[in-house]
Write a protein that binds this DNA or RNA. Structure first.
Lengths: 351, 351
DNA sequence: TCACGTGTTCGAAACGGTTTCGGAGGGAAG
DNA sequence: CTTCCCTCCGAAACCGTTTCGAACACGTGA
């Protein structure tokens, strides 16, 4: 039988059952590898299914089994801040790899939630309509309302990277998220720098808090002084602006640590507009190690973290939460971020 | 009634019906805004639904209505080539924006399909299980098997960017995908360059074919000569290698056009290792205009295209295909890519 | 008063699977 | 030849919604 638009009607389990001369129950058991059917019956059923190109409708399966086979990932960022940052793409890649291995799918939303209420509504919609079995929570903030949201919804969730606020939700990430920053400060101290600055982001983000904490602690440890810690929105323009402000201060830093590579490059460029060259007059450290970093002139000293691995671990952790028997090995320990030393850092200028 | 794990059982339409003292049918009509219920009944139902926090299960709705409310996007690239390229993130952002407006969701898979068969299986799985109502086809190739795949599956699809091969599938993109390359060659010709090269990608990609065609046509138009057209995998390392090979030739180019910005930067860096500085000894043109481009030293001359807009248009086109009445205005014409002139191109060296 | 629309409501049948449970059949043990 | 057990299979219930057709109440015009 054909539909009016000419496309053939999809076969259903009943068609397969009829053609194979068995009941729907037997077909179901056959394709799901359950016991209760003889090997010959199973073969016959599978052969018919293959011939007709039939596979169970995910919709019907989701309805009966109470699981959609998909998890959700809601990104709350404006597009221009997304594309300059390799973080999300790498995270997605890692997540996907682990999910695909287990036959799960990823429901993605890139949102631009102006208000917390709108963000909450997005999660409520996703969970309430039972479209996904669980979600990732990324870029957690201080007093993040999503912790309560997912709990209220009874929605399994995994936090990506160590959250600053205490929560009973499982999280996956390196134990010391500020490790790379510590290394960076140590590196600068050894190069003889005494006055340093840190160009960072909104002060309610968990990762910003951890890195700031690490920066301040390391600075204190090595007897350096902080001459500025401007906040930006992570955009290169903001990075350049912050750099110029730092350089116009009475106490000018001889080295600046940035919260991402793009700001570091923009900052370095802005400094050269003031006649300060990197690394001779100003040392610069980035964060993320984007693929271009080693091809710049000078190549960028930066902090690297294996975000793809992070994504994989998070996905496995979430699958575990969903009751997948063995989502893959190891989601326990992620190595701390490490410093990659290249040409953008050098000895402090002798004033 | 609670489940054994302590989480409250989700209310169903029956619960709402019982509490509101009406039938399931009336509840359904009430929440879907259909006629056939009195205003007072509708209010009562909605009030109860609100109080219990109930919303229809997307699973059950998908089963009865025959539409999942989601579309699929399968990306076939290795992760390291993804994160250096802003293209997919921007495309995703645009797609999401248009989808979210209409209440549709995006199912994403980042695959690493070694074989065409594996790629075909991914689409078959997605369509066969009826998880999505339609898909995007991106990075189409010459003789792309996916055209046949989606037709055989009866899966609505929209091609992202003009395909090289003829197909009856709808596509969305600029009419002249090589427009930016034409401009670039013209720009170089005016600067006095005579020997140029083009570092590009696998020769079966539609966009590579269009750009190559545009490059060759423009070069012929302006009487330049092509001294090399190496193929790469789009990675910075490959870009650097290709550059060195070009520079080691007997006929050395004075300007090189690259198929993306990362290769352009790597190429420029590689050239400086040979003692050739940009733009004095070698002019360099990139493609994509990543956000860092204008912050480099020298800033990168490159080709820009509004990929976010492209994504939005593609999504609207697909929604139209799915029968969404008015997915949003304008998906007809996307402007051609344009050249952004910055510091990495200059007058040809006088030999 | 009766027949007749009109608008509201409800019960029941899909939708396409999974799962439970009881029965049929066959072989081995007594 | 029973009896028992085990395997294989199918009927039926169920998941949570939409939709279809019938029933019902009510006001209206003849």
């Amino acid at each position: 039988m054909d539909r009016d638009d000419g496309r053939a009607r999809r076969p259903t389990i009943s068609d397969i059952a009829a053609l194979a001369g068995v009941s729907k129950a037997s077909v179901s058991k056959s394709v799901n590898g359950q016991s209760g059917v003889s090997e010959s019956t199973r073969r016959r059923v599978l052969e018919v299914a293959e011939r007709l190109g039939w596979r169970p409708s995910a919709r019907a399966v989701a309805l009966t089994r109470g699981g959609s086979g998909a998890v959700g990932f809601l990104i709350n960022r404006s597009p221009d801040l997304l594309s300059s940052d390799p973080y999300f793409v790498d995270l997605l890649s890692g997540i996907e790899r682990a999910l695909t291995e287990q036959g799960y799918w990823l429901l993605l939303q890139i949102g631009h939630h102006a208000t917390e209420e709108s963000e909450r509504a997005a999660y409520a919609d996703l969970a309430g309509s039972q479209r996904v079995d669980g979600v990732f929570l990324t870029e957690t903030r201080l007093g993040d309302p999503r912790f309560d949201t997912v709990r209220a919804l009874g929605l399994p969730a995994v936090v990506v990277s160590k959250p600053w606020a205490r929560t009973d939700l499982p999280w996956v990430g390196s134990a010391n998220p500020g490790g790379g920053i510590e290394d960076a400060v140590l590196h600068l101290a050894r190069l003889g720098h005494r006055k340093v600055a840190y160009v960072t982001g909104p002060q309610d983000r968990s990762h910003v808090l951890y890195r700031t904490e690490a920066f301040l602690a390391a600075v204190a440890d090595h007897g350096l002084s902080v001459v500025g810690m401007p906040r930006t929105d992570f955009s290169p323009d903001a990075g350049a602006r912050a750099t110029l402000e730092l350089l116009d201060q009475r106490e000018r830093p001889s080295a600046i640590v940035y919260d991402n590579d793009v700001m570091a490059v923009a900052g370095s460029q802005a400094a050269s507009g003031r006649g300060l060259s990197t690394p001779h007059d100003l040392s610069v450290v980035g964060h993320d190690d984007i693929s271009m970093s080693r091809w710049l002139t000078p190549a960028l000293t930066t902090v690297r973290q294996d975000v793809i691995e992070l994504g994989q671990m998070c996905a496995r952790r979430l699958l575990l939460e969903l009751g997948v028997p063995d989502p893959g090995d190891g989601w326990q320990s992620l190595p701390d971020p490490t410093l990659v030393v290249r040409g953008s850092t050098g000895p402090a200028p002798t004033s």
